[in-house]
Design a protein around this nucleic acid. Sequence first.
RNA 1: GUGGGUGUAGCUCAGUUGGUUAGAGCGCCAGAUUGUGGCUCUGGAGGCCAUGGGUUCGAAUCCCAUCAUUCACCCCA
Length: 424
Amino acid sequence: MEMLAKAPKGTRDILPDEIHKWYYVEEKFREIANRFGYKEIRIPVFEHTELFERGVGDTTDIVQKEMYTFNDKGGRSITLRPEGTAGVVRSYIQNGMSSWAQPVKLFYDITAYRYENVQKGRYREFHQFGVELFGAAHPGADVEVISLLHLFFKELGIKNLALNINSIGCPTCREKYNQKLKEFLGTKLDNLCHTCKERYDRNPMRILDCKDDSCKQMVVNAPALLDHICEDCAKHFERVKSKLTAMDIPFSIDKGIVRGLDYYTRTVFEFVSENIGSQGTVCGGGRYDGLIEACGGTPTPGIGFGLGVERLLLEMDNQKIEIPAPKSPDIFIGFVGEQAEELAESLTLKLRAAGISCDKDIMARSVRAQMKYANKINSRFIIILGDNEVESGKVELKDMTTGETKDINIDTIVDRLLKYKIGN
RNA sequence: GUGGGUGUAGCUCAGUUGGUUAGAGCGCCAGAUUGUGGCUCUGGAGGCCAUGGGUUCGAAUCCCAUCAUUCACCCCA
């Protein structure tokens, strides 16, 4: 196949036969977010590169090697958003949301872009649902966000999604911990893999989830960050845990969760599936109390998450969760002859104007071919117009599911179909 | 960036130790039914066998390269 007729690597079309699944989860997410008091925000697909360097963190993989960055014709460095939080934070500052009624509760439904090798559940253009909650430092905020996800998955009928939580403390306790970790690893430095030797100086925490066997062994008895967070952070985490328990939201503690984005503080969490391959993280999020300040705003606590829609759909497919079928047309109008064609055209428009989904042939096909088409598009009713019908004003209304027909006046067809729709 | 699998019709796939006109099912179009769908039957369209090179009398088949795709590692949604 030629390049011309080929979507770029890591992108794909969402075709008409699957779009109802997207409508379904999008509508569910929107509806639940609204129920929790979150309002939708729409942000640009691209931002100034500096925003992501600052907001996501310039030591992260995302910024170092995964961004779609280019210069526009004005010489500005522009980057396609690799995630949603940075853009929403920028908007929060730019639009003075700190003077809105607090807290500010926002949700979004976006595409995001990362230049990575493609595999199951991972694309270069992908979709994220997300929520950002600004202004609330209280552990109740962490729990509200998590409970939104809990309810979302529950109402979609998804089972066996494990909620893992951890606390990665604040910058102060992380600094202290990094010292401790370096002391622990100092004697073992020679046994670490090449990348981990570099991590030792820049970000020693990353050594903990290295997949290298030798590194894994070295790290078995390493101190865990969670055991070394400061008193305030520990207290915060305790309250999050007890609130989750009180709300009957099951969770496990995973001391290994170290979010890949620099901005996280304190609570971090993810919802993980075991059966959609190695890309099992359907949703990841956490608290980012220093981010708004780091982006030039006044110090404001924040918490949010990003949810991978492709992975969500993959998991639902895996669990054989039924998604309501798309609506089929109410009626197809067949015709033969020129007079009948004109009647069919005006009648079709009249039905459509009345809110009835109606279709007719526009390829000058035989009545037989028209009927086959009506069947293929799954039309509920059909009528056929010819000279007789034009003259008498009467028509046979046929129910395609039962094959039954009924003689009716053409004038009454709108009412009949409206009644059918309401009653059904 | 690293490693493995796979590239034949719109889709899912056959194709014998290399052998001459490359097949099936599904889908699409038309007809059987000149004004009535589904079921059935008949016919039709649709292929540079991913691309380029090599071996050979002869390559979809064997070899090399490139590209694409997919799974995995790293990392993440």
